[in-house]
Design a binder for these strands. Structure first.
Lengths: 155, 155
DNA sequence: CCTGAAAAGAACTTTCT
DNA sequence: AGAAAGTTCTTTTCAGG
């Protein structure tokens, strides 16, 4: 993967907050011309440093106001079934994030739903479709304190 | 908050995956002219239905390849200190997401760091700056199975 | 009120130095 | 890299449902 310089880092810091900002405005902030910024953006998109540019929307308007954090235990034996699980997950729109972790549970998922009833349906389906999952510990999110995907760009 | 119609829902579904898609391309997908799509986008941005448009970047390139999920226990008495905590959190770039939850822990945070050492520094600082946090249970993320912020838009 | 289409304006891409 | 020309996209305007 291509190396990035000081200007790239600054640009990444900006577009992680607002990727619709005009190249000229970014240029003013980082001390570069609009052309140079555009070139760098194109290079970072093409090389995969920028993996996606997405809109965040109001969950209530989308009809999925609730969030749940599910800790899951899986059977050690067939934990190679993860690849199949991955394929299955890609199609599950309500399951936003899944992490394979160390600790008291094996997987942690962040799931969005209309209400508790719908969450129940989702987890019931999750367990029936993926028998390697033995147990689910649920935390209901009462309040989003901070939500983001921002990653600091180290110098 | 303004109501949204079928076209808005389709547009939201698209820009949650790619917010740089051209209005004409979106129009082709949803069956609307480019002008109409632009108008709807502007309205949804102004009204706060679209809360942000952000770039996702490669964590390794950013120098923060590791992710940790921290479950935190807080003292019941001064859990109104949440508002101060919130202000403090806003400045903590390594702490991406924080949820106030029911269950065995009170808060769950998703934290990004260069390595375990840096994570240790972050949590040490977290606890010294916020004495109401009594205990932290850490899950180290071994693999990101799915990462996203996509929210399905109910009809 | 919202659409589609065309004109006007702004941004991006390319080329050149 | 920056600047200017060329191209594309967005914004505004306007007529019509």
């Amino acid at each position: 993967m291509e190396p990035i310089d000081h200007f790239d880092r600054k640009i990444l810091g900006i577009i992680q907050v607002d990727c619709q900002m005009k190249a000229e405005a970014i240029g003013d902030l980082v001390g570069l011309s609009a052309s140079a910024v555009q070139r760098r953006l194109k290079r970072m998109r093409d090389s995969g440093i920028i993996t996606a540019e997405i809109a965040l929307i109001d969950r209530k308007v989308a009809g999925n106001p609730m969030t749940f954090i599910a800790g899951m235990e899986i059977e050690r034996e067939n934990y190679d079934a993860l690849s199949k699980f991955r394929v299955w997950l890609a199609k599950q729109e309500h399951i936003q994030q899944v992490y394979y972790v160390t600790g008291s549970v094996d997987l942690i998922a962040i799931i969005t739903a209309r209400d508790v009833g719908e969450y129940d349906e989702i987890t019931a389906n999750l367990m029936s479709e993926n028998p390697q999952i033995k147990r689910i510990h649920t935390n209901v999110v009462l309040k989003d304190i901070k939500l983001g995907m921002f990653v600091p760009v180290a110098e």
